[in-house]
Amino acid sequence: MFMPWQEVSLVTVISFIEAVSQALREEMQRDRRVFVLGEDVGVRGGVFRATKGMLEEFGEKRVIDTPLSEAAIAGIAVGASAFGLRPVAEIQFADYMMTAVNQIVNEAAKMRYRSNGDWHCPMVIRAPFGGGVHGSLYHSQSVEAMFCNIPGLKVVVPSTPYDAKGLLKAAIRDEDPVLFFEHKRCYRLIKGEVPDSDYIVPIGKSSIRREGKHITVISYGLSLHFVLEAATRLEEDGYSAHIVDLRTLYPLDKETIVTAARKTGKVLIVHEDNKEGGVGGEVAAVIAEECFYELDAPIRRLCGPDVPAMPYNPVMEQFFMLNPDKVYQAMLDLAEL
């Protein structure tokens, strides 16, 4: 029973995409400097409906349907954020960020540094990434690793609705450019509890999703959910997994990673992006540098195959994608080592 004299913090179960929408809407209500721009974000409300209803609520000056023009979207966000506004740009699919890379890497990431702290770019670029949705080569890519050796940028990948909302709010309030990657398979598949009150999840902090003592599994995005599911099955084999959700891919939360690796001495890194040059390589290097002698086994990685992109044909797509079975097998192999 609702008793108005009591302090209540309401919690609602919502989908991942609703969490993104709530964060955008609440930040735009809170701060008139915040605006969104991107392809189809206005009348259509975004192809994934992240900005649904926002044109009506905030008007066309703050919810801007842009031309098909990713370099302009990113470059305009650079200019607007340098001026002092808080643009949240949507790149419709992460694959399309490639035509905006100059603005992201040469401009947004370097503005603070090259101006000796005089100018900076508090901007966010949101982009759906990842596959398993019959998206083929150009609607399925995981592009995050490319941006994870660019000091000046922050790269964030939430895996739950709670984190999506809290991290997006943190990204919008951040003083530096943040790339915010949302796994598109999570949008409607993943639901979770989100408080109605205002909160943020700090950028740069990873999260322990499950405590365990036999193996440490480090993941992010959709793959994290496969890891959690596999961990439940692994319990039946008598092994418990200690699970880290990276949440921020750049800069990495080295402390949490190393502490988690030390805890079990056996590490598996799981991501959908292909293995070579992926985020997992840097995570493995950090562990090797910091606690090599405390490991009981070589660090392992389970990742997408090293091919240019994800095929459309469903059999080949499934071959590319990770799933709970593949992850379970890799976890069991490591646990039994």
């Binding site: 801007i64 305009i76 650079v78 200019g79 954020s81 001026f83 603005q103």
Partner: peptide, 10 residues
Amino acid sequence: VPHAVGIALS
């Protein structure tokens, strides 16, 4: 050039 447009948009 797009930065100028971003400032003007602001």
